[in-house]
Amino acid sequence: MIINNLKLIREKKKISQSELAALLEVSRQTINGIEKNKYNPSLQLALKIAYYLNTPLEDIFQ
């Protein structure tokens, strides 16, 4: 099972779900679904998340 630290990292960087969704060009519901482990992001989306949060991919999804 993948450990998902997206919410923790996003909140630590003081970025809202809506702000991150806008940067990634996805819906806020997509971010919410990823954070609640209801949706697994594509590799492309996971890499974009890591880029915009300036955090290694391995720290977000373990």
Rank of each mutant, 00 (worst) to 15 (best):
residue 1 M to I: 14
residue 1 M to N: 12
residue 1 M to C: 15
residue 1 M to W: 11
residue 1 M to V: 13
residue 1 M to R: 06
residue 1 M to D: 09
residue 1 M to G: 13
residue 2 I to W: 12
residue 2 I to V: 13
residue 2 I to K: 12
residue 2 I to L: 12
residue 3 I to C: 13
residue 3 I to E: 09
residue 3 I to R: 14
residue 3 I to W: 09
residue 3 I to F: 12
residue 4 N to T: 05
residue 4 N to R: 03
residue 4 N to C: 08
residue 4 N to P: 04
residue 5 N to Y: 07
residue 5 N to D: 05
residue 5 N to H: 09
residue 6 L to E: 00
residue 6 L to N: 03
residue 6 L to G: 01
residue 6 L to V: 09
residue 6 L to W: 00
residue 6 L to K: 00
residue 7 K to L: 06
residue 7 K to S: 06
residue 7 K to F: 06
residue 7 K to N: 04
residue 8 L to K: 15
residue 8 L to D: 13
residue 8 L to A: 15
residue 8 L to R: 13
residue 8 L to M: 13
residue 8 L to I: 13
residue 8 L to S: 13
residue 8 L to Q: 14
residue 9 I to S: 03
residue 9 I to N: 03
residue 9 I to L: 08
residue 9 I to W: 08
residue 9 I to M: 06
residue 9 I to T: 08
residue 9 I to Y: 11
residue 9 I to P: 00
residue 9 I to C: 07
residue 10 R to P: 01
residue 10 R to M: 07
residue 10 R to W: 03
residue 10 R to L: 04
residue 10 R to H: 01
residue 10 R to E: 02
residue 10 R to I: 04
residue 10 R to D: 01
residue 11 E to Y: 06
residue 11 E to P: 02
residue 11 E to K: 09
residue 11 E to V: 09
residue 11 E to N: 08
residue 11 E to H: 07
residue 12 K to W: 07
residue 12 K to D: 09
residue 13 K to L: 14
residue 13 K to G: 04
residue 13 K to M: 13
residue 13 K to N: 13
residue 13 K to I: 06
residue 14 K to V: 04
residue 14 K to P: 02
residue 14 K to Q: 12
residue 14 K to H: 13
residue 14 K to W: 05
residue 15 I to V: 09
residue 15 I to Y: 07
residue 15 I to S: 01
residue 15 I to F: 07
residue 15 I to L: 12
residue 16 S to A: 05
residue 16 S to M: 05
residue 16 S to N: 06
residue 16 S to E: 06
residue 17 Q to E: 04
residue 17 Q to L: 12
residue 17 Q to P: 04
residue 17 Q to R: 09
residue 17 Q to G: 03
residue 17 Q to I: 11
residue 18 S to T: 12
residue 18 S to N: 11
residue 18 S to V: 10
residue 18 S to Y: 12
residue 18 S to F: 09
residue 18 S to P: 05
residue 18 S to L: 10
residue 19 E to M: 11
residue 19 E to L: 08
residue 19 E to N: 08
residue 19 E to R: 14
residue 19 E to C: 09
residue 19 E to D: 10
residue 19 E to F: 08
residue 19 E to W: 07
residue 19 E to G: 08
residue 20 L to T: 01
residue 20 L to R: 00
residue 20 L to M: 06
residue 20 L to F: 07
residue 20 L to W: 03
residue 20 L to P: 00
residue 20 L to H: 00
residue 20 L to Q: 02
residue 21 A to V: 03
residue 21 A to W: 03
residue 21 A to L: 04
residue 21 A to R: 02
residue 22 A to W: 07
residue 22 A to I: 11
residue 22 A to K: 13
residue 22 A to P: 00
residue 22 A to N: 11
residue 22 A to D: 11
residue 22 A to T: 13
residue 23 L to N: 08
residue 23 L to G: 10
residue 23 L to T: 06
residue 23 L to Q: 10
residue 23 L to K: 13
residue 23 L to Y: 11
residue 23 L to H: 15
residue 24 L to G: 01
residue 24 L to S: 06
residue 24 L to K: 00
residue 24 L to H: 00
residue 24 L to Y: 01
residue 24 L to M: 07
residue 24 L to P: 00
residue 24 L to D: 00
residue 24 L to I: 08
residue 24 L to R: 00
residue 25 E to V: 07
residue 25 E to N: 14
residue 25 E to S: 11
residue 25 E to Q: 15
residue 25 E to K: 14
residue 25 E to C: 14
residue 26 V to H: 01
residue 26 V to G: 02
residue 26 V to N: 01
residue 26 V to T: 06
residue 26 V to F: 02
residue 26 V to E: 04
residue 26 V to W: 03
residue 27 S to F: 03
residue 27 S to Q: 06
residue 27 S to N: 09
residue 27 S to C: 06
residue 28 R to Y: 09
residue 28 R to E: 15
residue 28 R to F: 10
residue 28 R to D: 10
residue 28 R to H: 09
residue 28 R to W: 15
residue 28 R to A: 14
residue 29 Q to I: 10
residue 29 Q to C: 12
residue 29 Q to S: 12
residue 29 Q to P: 06
residue 29 Q to F: 10
residue 29 Q to A: 15
residue 29 Q to N: 14
residue 29 Q to M: 09
residue 30 T to A: 07
residue 30 T to M: 11
residue 30 T to E: 08
residue 30 T to C: 15
residue 31 I to H: 01
residue 31 I to M: 04
residue 31 I to G: 00
residue 31 I to S: 00
residue 31 I to D: 00
residue 31 I to C: 02
residue 31 I to T: 01
residue 31 I to K: 04
residue 31 I to N: 00
residue 32 N to F: 07
residue 32 N to G: 08
residue 32 N to L: 10
residue 32 N to W: 12
residue 32 N to Y: 09
residue 32 N to R: 15
residue 32 N to Q: 13
residue 32 N to V: 14
residue 32 N to C: 09
residue 32 N to T: 07
residue 33 G to M: 15
residue 33 G to V: 10
residue 33 G to C: 15
residue 33 G to K: 15
residue 33 G to Y: 14
residue 33 G to I: 09
residue 33 G to A: 15
residue 33 G to F: 13
residue 33 G to N: 15
residue 34 I to D: 01
residue 34 I to M: 07
residue 34 I to Y: 04
residue 35 E to W: 03
residue 35 E to Y: 04
residue 35 E to R: 01
residue 35 E to P: 01
residue 35 E to Q: 00
residue 36 K to C: 14
residue 36 K to P: 02
residue 36 K to V: 10
residue 36 K to H: 13
residue 37 N to L: 09
residue 37 N to R: 11
residue 37 N to F: 12
residue 37 N to S: 11
residue 37 N to H: 14
residue 38 K to I: 14
residue 38 K to L: 15
residue 38 K to P: 04
residue 38 K to S: 11
residue 38 K to R: 13
residue 38 K to A: 08
residue 38 K to C: 14
residue 38 K to H: 14
residue 39 Y to V: 13
residue 39 Y to A: 07
residue 39 Y to N: 06
residue 39 Y to F: 14
residue 39 Y to H: 10
residue 39 Y to T: 09
residue 40 N to R: 15
residue 40 N to E: 12
residue 40 N to L: 12
residue 40 N to Y: 13
residue 40 N to V: 14
residue 40 N to M: 14
residue 40 N to T: 14
residue 40 N to P: 11
residue 40 N to H: 13
residue 40 N to D: 10
residue 41 P to E: 03
residue 41 P to S: 03
residue 41 P to M: 04
residue 42 S to I: 04
residue 42 S to Q: 06
residue 42 S to K: 08
residue 42 S to E: 06
residue 42 S to N: 08
residue 42 S to W: 04
residue 42 S to F: 04
residue 42 S to C: 07
residue 42 S to M: 05
residue 43 L to W: 13
residue 43 L to G: 08
residue 43 L to Y: 12
residue 43 L to A: 12
residue 43 L to N: 09
residue 43 L to D: 07
residue 44 Q to T: 12
residue 44 Q to P: 11
residue 44 Q to G: 14
residue 44 Q to Y: 10
residue 44 Q to A: 13
residue 45 L to R: 00
residue 45 L to G: 00
residue 45 L to Q: 05
residue 46 A to R: 14
residue 46 A to H: 02
residue 46 A to E: 03
residue 46 A to D: 00
residue 46 A to V: 06
residue 46 A to N: 01
residue 46 A to K: 15
residue 46 A to C: 12
residue 46 A to P: 03
residue 46 A to F: 03
residue 47 L to F: 11
residue 47 L to W: 08
residue 47 L to I: 11
residue 47 L to Y: 10
residue 47 L to M: 13
residue 47 L to G: 06
residue 47 L to C: 14
residue 47 L to Q: 13
residue 48 K to Q: 08
residue 48 K to T: 04
residue 48 K to H: 05
residue 48 K to E: 06
residue 48 K to N: 05
residue 48 K to V: 04
residue 49 I to F: 03
residue 49 I to A: 02
residue 49 I to K: 00
residue 49 I to Y: 02
residue 49 I to L: 07
residue 50 A to N: 01
residue 50 A to K: 02
residue 50 A to D: 00
residue 50 A to G: 05
residue 50 A to Q: 04
residue 50 A to S: 09
residue 50 A to C: 07
residue 50 A to F: 02
residue 50 A to W: 03
residue 50 A to Y: 02
residue 51 Y to S: 08
residue 51 Y to I: 10
residue 51 Y to K: 10
residue 51 Y to N: 07
residue 51 Y to L: 08
residue 51 Y to G: 07
residue 51 Y to M: 12
residue 52 Y to H: 09
residue 52 Y to C: 09
residue 52 Y to F: 13
residue 52 Y to T: 10
residue 52 Y to P: 00
residue 52 Y to S: 05
residue 52 Y to M: 10
residue 52 Y to I: 15
residue 52 Y to A: 12
residue 53 L to N: 01
residue 53 L to K: 01
residue 53 L to R: 00
residue 53 L to C: 04
residue 53 L to Y: 01
residue 53 L to M: 07
residue 53 L to A: 02
residue 53 L to D: 00
residue 54 N to Q: 13
residue 54 N to D: 14
residue 54 N to H: 09
residue 54 N to T: 08
residue 54 N to V: 05
residue 54 N to I: 04
residue 54 N to W: 05
residue 54 N to S: 10
residue 54 N to G: 10
residue 55 T to E: 10
residue 55 T to H: 07
residue 55 T to N: 02
residue 55 T to I: 07
residue 56 P to K: 08
residue 56 P to G: 05
residue 56 P to I: 05
residue 56 P to N: 08
residue 56 P to T: 07
residue 56 P to L: 05
residue 56 P to Y: 05
residue 56 P to S: 08
residue 57 L to A: 06
residue 57 L to W: 09
residue 57 L to V: 14
residue 57 L to Q: 03
residue 57 L to P: 05
residue 58 E to W: 09
residue 58 E to I: 09
residue 58 E to G: 12
residue 58 E to N: 11
residue 58 E to Y: 07
residue 59 D to N: 12
residue 59 D to T: 09
residue 59 D to F: 10
residue 59 D to C: 14
residue 60 I to S: 02
residue 60 I to T: 02
residue 60 I to E: 02
residue 60 I to Q: 02
residue 60 I to W: 03
residue 60 I to D: 00
residue 61 F to A: 03
residue 61 F to R: 03
residue 61 F to W: 09
residue 61 F to Q: 02
residue 61 F to S: 01
residue 61 F to D: 02
residue 61 F to M: 04
residue 61 F to T: 03
residue 62 Q to L: 13
residue 62 Q to K: 12
residue 62 Q to F: 13
residue 62 Q to W: 10
residue 62 Q to C: 11
